[in-house]
Simulated assay, not measured.
Amino acid sequence: MAELWKSLPSWVRNIVVPVLVLILAWNLLVFVFGVVGALLAFAVKALVVVGIAAAVVILVKKAARN
């Protein structure tokens, strides 16, 4: 690997490689935030559905008593 690195021209080592690393790091960061955001959105939706279901059950039980 060191031989390959030293065989590259200096402009590739100093410009191209860091730019590629930054692009890959940015894409990885966006991916991680996207996954976390999707999981949080799913959790919020699930909590809303559970809350609505609980309210319906309470109202049905209350209506059945009367």
Rank of each mutant, 00 (worst) to 15 (best):
N14M: 08
S10C: 01
L28Q: 13
L20P: 01
R65P: 01
V17L: 14
K6R: 13
G34F: 07
N27W: 07
N14D: 14
V21L: 13
A63P: 02
A25C: 10
W26I: 12
A64Q: 15
V48N: 06
A54N: 07
A54W: 01
K62P: 00
L28Y: 11
P9V: 01
N66K: 15
A53M: 08
A38R: 11
K61W: 04
M1F: 09
L40A: 12
V57M: 06
N14I: 01
L59Q: 08
R13K: 15
A2F: 09
L20V: 13
L40R: 14
I52H: 04
L20C: 14
F31A: 12
V48P: 00
L24E: 12
V60W: 03
I23T: 10
F31R: 11
A25E: 06
A63L: 13
I15H: 06
F33S: 04
W11S: 07
V48M: 08
I58D: 06
V60D: 03
V49N: 02
V32R: 08
W26V: 12
F42A: 08
A53Q: 12
N14R: 03
A55M: 05
R13F: 00
L8E: 07
V56K: 05
S10Q: 14
I52C: 00
V49L: 04
I52W: 02
V12H: 10
E3H: 08
S10K: 10
V48E: 06
V48S: 02
L24T: 11
A54P: 00
V30Q: 13
L4P: 01
P18N: 10
P9R: 04
L4S: 14
L29Q: 13
V49C: 01
K45V: 07
A64N: 14
F33P: 00
P9D: 03
A41K: 14
F42I: 05
A43M: 05
I15P: 00
S10I: 05
F33H: 09
L59H: 01
A53D: 10
L47S: 07
L47R: 10
P9Y: 02
W26A: 15
K62A: 13
V49E: 06
L39M: 13
K45R: 14
I15F: 05
V35N: 06
L47P: 00
L29F: 15
L8Q: 11
R65I: 10
N66D: 15
S7Q: 14
R65D: 12
V48Y: 03
V19R: 14
S7G: 15
V36L: 12
V56Y: 06
L59M: 11
G34T: 04
V36F: 04
A55E: 05
W26F: 14
V50L: 03
W5D: 02
V30I: 13
V57D: 03
I58T: 02
V12C: 04
L20K: 05
W11K: 04
G34M: 07
W5R: 10
W11V: 04
F33D: 03
L8W: 10
M1L: 11
A53I: 00
L22K: 12
